[in-house]
Design a protein around this nucleic acid. Structure first.
Lengths: 208, 208
DNA sequence: ACGGTTCTCGAACGCTGTTCGAGGCTGTGC
DNA sequence: GCACAGCCTCGAACAGCGTTCGAGAACCGT
């Protein structure tokens, strides 16, 4: 990969973590900090938007690696028994929650990215990222093992719901605090994860 | 209210429903269609962003009115018994889901609005809308009645989760379809609502 | 050493939201 | 009846944006 292109991704990642609004990310700022010119953004990535996508993709890979590692750790720890349902859920949603709260993490990249994807524009650009990176099929067999009474689609739907709750936490902290009367400390990742697990686990339990 | 300002809100609502990306909403387009000039947007609302907020607020009021009416209908229907848990959940999340799928509805306004709020910028602008309009305290007593073993905060947290799942459906339809192997028809509001109710209800059930 | 590819740069384009001052209305007090 | 505020509208102007384009530099295989 061209060194300028790499440098642009580096700077983009770094800049996305510093800014509050995606509007503060401008081609000229990116270029200046990367020691090049705005036109090189369009040249190497086609558009500024695609540069952000490339940047997010790199971060997603790291996040998914952590998810996977937690899942494997849970599996190995319980072996030869199947891992606990709670641990699988925590592996699925935990890293996002933790990253979103850790000050030094690269999570802001993803939060700006999803905000951008939400803006509309051309969904095709994001399609492969969402389908490729956000698909969490690795988790499926574990859930199937623990909830054999649920079909694959039903499990996928519940995973989707779990991720929706996760997004709600990382996105709308203010509303969460209001609705819970400030009794949950949303800056405490462990506490938040526990609360999510507490509501997601019942979705997988056998109905009476 | 100034007729020009009203007209701008009308046009803004209408335009937000037609466009795919929020970027297509420009002060000049708004002004032209409203028969005025871009500067009047800043004059009457302070900024284009605040015009969108005012517009969203108006739509939110209608949405919440529908929620309330469904809640009351459920309560009246079951009277003197307490309404069914499923009906309360459906009243909470149903109108959003239904609006998001109905072609003629004003839901795109809200989806663009939340996308904008997500962008960062100045959260203070959105605070009062989110706290004021999105708080759903009306639902609280009903849930308390049906799940007295849960504290008020625990119920608020579960409502928050339900709304998160709702957002997931209205926002990331693509990912939902992939994760559920296209077995759920996400264009069928009734079906989607049923699926949401199926996962949310267990959150309120008494633990074994 | 040459020819072609890859890359970099700066100027330019058309667009954006917002600001500002000049002017037009309207209503009130004298 | 007139003058003065107040509110409103408009057009020009401004700084900034992402992207395009052509000229040239740098590199590399032949």
């Amino acid at each position: 990969m061209n060194p300028t292109a790499t440098k642009l991704i580096d700077v983009c990642e770094q800049l996305l973590c510093e800014i509050d609004s995606i509007d503060e990310l401008t081609a000229r700022r990116l270029a200046t900090r990367a020691g090049t010119t705005p036109s090189s953004v369009s040249y190497h990535f086609g558009s500024q938007e695609q540069l952000v996508i490339a940047t997010a993709e790199r971060v997603y890979k790291r996040l998914n690696a952590e998810r996977l590692s937690q899942l494997n750790a849970a599996a190995q720890h319980a072996s030869p028994n199947p891992p606990a349902l709670e641990d699988i859920i925590a592996a699925l949603i935990g890293p996002s929650v933790r990253w979103s709260l850790e000050p030094g993490s690269r999570y802001p990249v993803l939060s700006h990215f999803t905000a951008m994807a939400q803006r509309g524009g051309n969904p095709e650009l994001y399609r492969h990222v969402i389908e490729g990176i956000e698909h969490h099929r690795v988790f499926m067999p574990y859930f199937r093992l623990l909830a054999p009474w649920l079909s694959e689609a039903e499990i996928g739907w519940r995973m989707s719901c779990a991720l929706g709750i996760r997004s709600q936490v990382t996105r709308s902290r203010l509303r969460n605090e209001v609705l819970t009367n400030h009794t949950i400390d949303f800056s405490n990742a462990g506490e938040v994860i526990d609360h999510i697990v507490a509501v997601v686990a019942p979705m997988f339990r056998k109905p009476a």
